[in-house]
């Protein structure tokens, strides 16, 4: 197994009010391992604790209990930040700077020498396709362009681990395709990508593994291909099929020894996502029922599957 680059143990985060009273438990006992070189999808409906987890991993928030490590270092430490890149949910950049100035500013924070910085700026602007707008202030950028420059700043230090929060939001289909291709090429370069997204099709396309969060708890984690395969179901596909032909196929199937091309039928990631959320929402009022429903859903989903898909034991306490 390759090296763990992101590791959390019993990571929890409570938000408290001014008087120290608990407002919400945003993240509950998160145990996560992300390995070097994989593209990891982090999913969950709004308010599930995704952003809280990412902020904890980036050192923007401090955990109430438990711990996290990024590249073996505490989150937010200089040594960890040297080797990571982060594209926030929206491109929160200085709008009065142009693309070059933006990248130059972030490059300076890494103390990249001027000459090298210029080279990287040119390369990244080209990579994200903003050559035509490199001297324009970001306030004049469209949402898609802002995403692109945001992505470029996340890559200015040639990071080992890249956190992408909704990387394709606001992009047109071509832009989305380009970003997805870029993520794949980053993976090919051996980089680890930790990606939060609501766009499930994107996650399905590029992620090796995914984790799903609901109400601050990790519900599902596993390989995308394993999670999405319906075991024991095979579909046939043919065109212009006459009924008698279908019968013959039926008979032929029953007869033994003949070969047919078959295809495993996958449900979409969206189906899986909705199923988990619906089940959880229905049972959310009763923590015990939530746990049971989750377990049942997972058992149903993963029946006969391999060990790479494991259900998260849901404890009702905490």
């Amino acid at each position: 197994m390759s090296e763990t680059v992101i590791e959390t143990r019993n990571l929890s985060k409570e938000y408290r009010d001014f008087w120290g009273k608990r407002k919400v438990l945003a993240l509950d006992d998160l145990n996560l391992d992300v390995y070097r070189g994989e593209v990891f999808g982090y999913l969950g409906p709004n308010g599930s604790g995704k952003t809280t987890s990412v902020k904890l991993l980036l050192g923007l928030l401090f955990p109430t209990s438990g711990w996290a490590k990024v590249l073996g270092e505490p989150p937010g430490s200089v040594s960890a930040n040297q080797r990571i890149g982060f594209l926030p949910e929206e491109s929160y950049l200085y709008r009065f700077l142009n693309a070059e100035e933006t990248l130059d500013f972030y490059g300076r924070l890494f103390k990249i020498p001027t000459r090298e910085r210029r080279k990287r700026i040119d390369r990244l602007i080209e990579l994200v396709g903003l050559e035509h707008a490199r001297k324009r202030q970001l306030k004049e950028y469209s949402k898609g362009m802002a995403r692109r420059i945001g992505l470029a700043q996340a890559l200015i230090n040639d990071p080992e681990v890249i956190f992408l929060d909704e990387p394709t939001t606001g992009l047109d289909p071509i832009g989305t395709r380009e970003i997805k291709d870029l993520i794949v090429s980053l993976k090919e370069e051996g980089k680890t990508v930790f990606m939060c997204s609501h766009l499930l099709a994107d996650v399905e396309d590029v992620c090796d593994r995914i984790a799903m969060l609901f109400l601050g708890r990790l519900e599902v984690i596993g390989n995308v291909s394993d999670l999405l395969t319906e075991k024991g179901v095979v579909s046939f596909r043919a065109e212009n099929v006459k009924p008698e032909t279908a019968d013959r196929i039926q008979q032929a199937l029953e007869a033994d020894g003949s070969y047919m091309g078959t295809e495993k039928v996958s449900r979409s990631l969206e189906d899986l996502f909705m199923k988990v959320v619906r089940e959880k929402s229905g049972a959310a009022a009763d923590p015990e029922a939530t746990a049971k429903a989750a377990e049942a859903a997972l058992v149903a989903k993963t029946a006969g599957d391999d060990e790479s898909v494991r259900s998260q034991e849901q404890e009702s306490q905490g």
Binding site: L60, G76, V78, F86, P88, L109, Q153
Partner: peptide, 14 residues
Amino acid sequence: SRKTIFTVMTKPAR
């Protein structure tokens, strides 16, 4: 409030 701090604080600046 503009959240520009996110991109600065996740860089190696103390």
